[in-house]
Structure formats: structure tokens, C-alpha cells
Nucleic acid binder design. Structure first.
Length: 429
DNA sequence: TCTGGGGTCCTAGGACCC
DNA sequence: TCTGGGGTCCTAGGACCC
């Protein structure tokens, strides 16, 4: 591969990621239709090919599916993000060995860049695929093209057509054939277009991805946005989606959950907020930053009849902080007055914004009490690193067996790669 | 009676992604 | 009983400044 070879984008993504992860350590799951459920065992977030073939959709609520699943012999698992995260890290580490520029897009997907002929890169992609299967046990597909948007489409093709062996290089097809493929895709199948935009595009008589490719970029920019204009260029083979700026700190941190059982009193909502705020504060400290604003919310079910209550309050702190006590107190003080006792709150959360890097010398704030909880967060983190997650927390966050509103994870698989007491067992018999 | 133009910063909201 | 969680980017509009 010489420097003169064309620069190509590779999109590698794990097939049916969460189900495939579960199947790595539980061979029985490989023989039946399987799904993984969202937090709280709410709805389907991953499906095995067999489950897809049975017509199970993303987002199907589990309680509506449960009985039919028994008939089908379909098995469900609660989501086990620790397991998926650790397998994902292994996949990304392997990709990093093959590709200089690697940008991790999500837990199961990464873009990489390589130079080479169509044949060379197709071959490399096969090697990548085999290596990941052999060393991690996860199946992946690879899409290759001159732009990210086209690599996405190629990846989609690799998934849909088994005869490609999991690798699809867009350049392997002459342009007339490429256009026929794009013609067969509805416009919302391209990366960056969803329902709203699809409707508005239809008014301009743009229905397929091919229509969008040949639309006037200036017009698209004027009627839609620079984002959609970039998509037009990318479909034509001109890279336009910017490489992700290395941002190691998040600008916004959200911690929100559906509750396993509704909270109905102010005290219960406060307990939930206390725990959630501490989790958010932990993430904040982990990335070495502090937050200036927080938004706190709780809400009753959107599906229930009768009156709803969904308070949402914003607070600005006098100075940015990562201190769990300050954040927790502020969150509770802000939301508590808006809680209507008797309402069934089934969701709550906190959003931290105005996030900046923590500097070594913080401003002196005359309004901060002299006993300021300096270093408390760090201390909690150190204890937890040593004695296991959630060994220590403030108030209810320190309870080993959580309160009733804690989320349901009835069908959780062992965290075999991250917890000593949950290691996989190999039977000798 | 008329009340510029250009710039920055911030926030809210829309749209989308996996 | 029961319907995900966590994030990004862009745009418009208001406040403020010179």
C-alpha cells in the first residue's frame, strides 16, 4: 500500500452487538432466537437474526412479547453494559492495531482510515473480521468507501447480503450499479435522514438516496441545513463530514432512568435524585471536570391516563463543582417543591451542563461554608475502586441491596469479564 | 419621528444517531 | 404492573456591546 493509493474509510460494526456479546459466554443462546432488553427490562434493544426473522422489532415492549416468546422458545437477557463495554474495548484495541486513524463512534461501531487498492483493502477487512472473531468471539461487518456516509451504506450491504462474506467495498461497483443500489434505498435509510426530513424531502420530489445524491447542494443547504448538504457531497464521494474533534470531556452529562417501581412521596423522589446525582457527579470527576448548571426532572408515565406531573427545573451553581454533596443538595432543593405527593413518578434524572476542566486552584467562593467537602468525592471514588462499585456512597447510594425503585434486571447475565465472583465456569465433565 | 450594523455569547429547541 | 438511555450538532433568536 503506497501513499499514492486512495484514502478510504472503513466502517466496522459488530453484528447484533448485545445479543452477540451474550452469545460469546452462553453457547445455549446460540441455538435459539434471542433478544436483549433495555434498562428495567422495558423493551427490545437488540435481536438475534432468528428473532428478527420472527418479526420482533426494535423497541417492542417486553411485556407484550413475553408470552409469545415462550411459544417461540425465544430467550431474553437484561442489558449488561459492563460486559458489552469490556468486549467493545477488546474489539477497538484490535482495530487500533490495524488502523492509524480510528474514531470510535459508539459501543459497537468505529470508523478507521486506510490507504490501498480495492483488492488490498477488501483483503485487509477480511483479516480484521477474522481476527476479531477469533480473539473476541464477535462477528463484525466492514463497509469501505471514500466517505463515511458511503461506508455506512456499504456496511449495510455487507450485512444484508451474506454472499459478500461480511465485507463490502463500494468501489467494487461501477457507478451505474451504485446508482441502482442507491435508487433501491428510501431516503431515510441514509445516515442523517429520519422521518421529519424524509417528509420535507418528499415535497421536493426527493424519495430515494439516489434522488438526494443528485439534488442541488445549494438548494439543500438553503431549505434544510449544512448537515444535509454534507450528506449530498458524501453520496457523491467527496468527504464532507468532519473528523471528530478529539473531545475527551463531555459537554453534557445525563443520568436518567425509568424506576423499577414508581416513587410516590417527596422523600422517595429525593432518594432517587440523591443516588442519580451521585452517579452523575462520579462521571464528572472521572473526566476531571466540574459543572456549573444542573437540570433536574421527574415525571409520571406518559402512557398512563389521568393527570401528569413532570417538573423540570434548572439551577445555576455559584461556582462550578464536582462535589457530590453540593450537587445533591442543589438537585433536591430545586426539585422537591415541585413534587406532588401521591403522583406515581416512574422516571427521574439529572443533566449537568456548563462543564469545564477542573483547574488546580479553584476560585475562592466567599459563600462556600468553610468546612467545604474538599476531596470528599475523590475519597469516595478511591474507596469504590478498591472495594468494588458502590461499596461507599452518601445515604441510600451506599446501600448494597438497592431500594424498591431500583431498576429491574431480572434476566441479567454474569459480568464475566469485569467481576471476579462472576467468572465464567468451564465444566470438565 | 425615528431608532444602524456587525459582532459575540448564550439558550432553547429541533433533528438525528446508536 | 409493564414502553431505553445517553449523546451530538445545528439554527434561531435574544441580550448585550461598540
Amino acid at each position: 500500500m503506497t501513499a499514492k493509493s486512495p484514502r478510504r474509510v472503513l466502517l466496522v460494526d459488530v453484528n447484533n452487538c448485545f445479543v452477540s456479546c451474550e452469545r460469546v459466554f452462553d453457547p445455549k443462546l446460540r441455538e435459539v432466537p434471542a433478544v436483549v432488553l433495555s434498562n428495567n427490562d422495558g423493551c427490545v434493544v437488540a435481536r438475534s437474526p432468528e428473532a428478527k426473522a420472527l418479526g420482533v422489532q426494535m423497541g417492542d415492549p417486553w411485556f407484550k412479547l413475553e408470552n409469545q416468546a415462550r411459544v417461540w422458545g425465544m430467550v431474553a437477557r437484561s442489558s449488561n453494559y459492563e460486559l458489552y463495554g469490556s468486549l467493545s474495548a477488546k474489539v477497538m484495541a484490535i482495530l487500533g492495531r490495524f488502523m492509524a486513524e480510528l474514531s470510535i463512534y459508539s459501543i459497537d461501531e468505529a470508523f478507521g482510515v486506510l490507504r490501498g487498492t480495492t483488492e488490498e483493502l477488501t483483503e485487509t477487512a477480511r483479516t480484521i473480521k477474522e481476527t476479531i472473531l477469533k480473539h473476541v468471539g464477535l462477528p463484525v461487518c466492514v463497509g469501505i468507501a471514500s466517505t463515511k456516509t458511503l461506508a455506512k451504506i456499504a456496511n449495510h450491504g455487507a450485512k444484508k447480503h451474506p454472499q459478500l462474506g461480511g465485507v463490502c467495498h463500494w468501489d467494487a461497483y461501477p457507478e451505474e450499479q451504485q446508482d441502482r443500489i442507491l435508487e433501491s434505498l428510501e431516503v431515510d435509510e441514509v445516515w442523517g435522514v429520519a422521518g421529519r426530513t424524509k417528509k420535507r424531502l418528499a415535497m421536493l420530489d426527493i424519495h430515494t438516496v439516489r434522488d438526494l445524491k443528485y439534488a442541488d447542494p445549494q438548494l439543500i443547504r438553503k431549505k434544510f441545513s449544512v448537515v444535509l448538504q454534507r450528506t449530498v457531497y458524501e453520496l457523491r464521494g467527496t468527504p464532507a463530514v468532519p473528523d471528530d474533534v478529539e473531545r475527551k470531556t463531555k459537554e453534557q452529562l445525563i443520568f436518567s432512568r425509568m424506576l423499577g417501581a414508581p416513587a410516590t412521596t417527596t422523600a422517595e423522589v429525593e432518594q432517587v435524585l440523591s443516588v442519580y446525582t451521585q452517579r452523575a457527579a462520579y462521571r464528572l470527576r472521572k473526566q476531571g471536570s466540574v459543572a456549573k448548571h444542573l437540570q433536574v426532572f421527574a415525571s409520571t408515565s406518559a402512557f398512563a391516563d389521568g393527570p401528569r406531573s413532570a417538573p423540570y427545573v434548572s439551577v445555576s451553581l455559584t461556582q462550578p463543582t464536582d462535589d457530590p454533596i453540593t450537587l445533591t443538595k442543589s438537585a433536591i432543593a430545586a426539585l422537591s417543591p415541585h413534587i406532588e405527593p401521591g403522583m406515581k413518578y416512574n422516571r427521574a434524572g439529572i443533566i449537568l451542563t456548563g462543564i469545564t476542566q477542573k483547574t488546580s486552584h479553584q476560585y475562592l467562593d466567599p459563600f462556600v461554608a468553610p468546612f467545604e467537602h474538599r476531596g470528599l468525592g475523590d475519597t469516595i471514588d478511591r474507596v469504590n475502586r478498591r472495594h468494588g462499585d458502590r461499596a461507599l456512597g452518601l445515604g441510600l447510594a451506599g446501600l448494597k441491596d438497592g431500594p424498591v425503585w431500583q431498576m429491574r434486571r431480572a434476566m441479567l447475565s454474569p459480568r464475566v469479564t469485569t467481576h471476579w465472583d462472576e467468572l465464567a465456569v468451564v465444566k470438565a465433565s
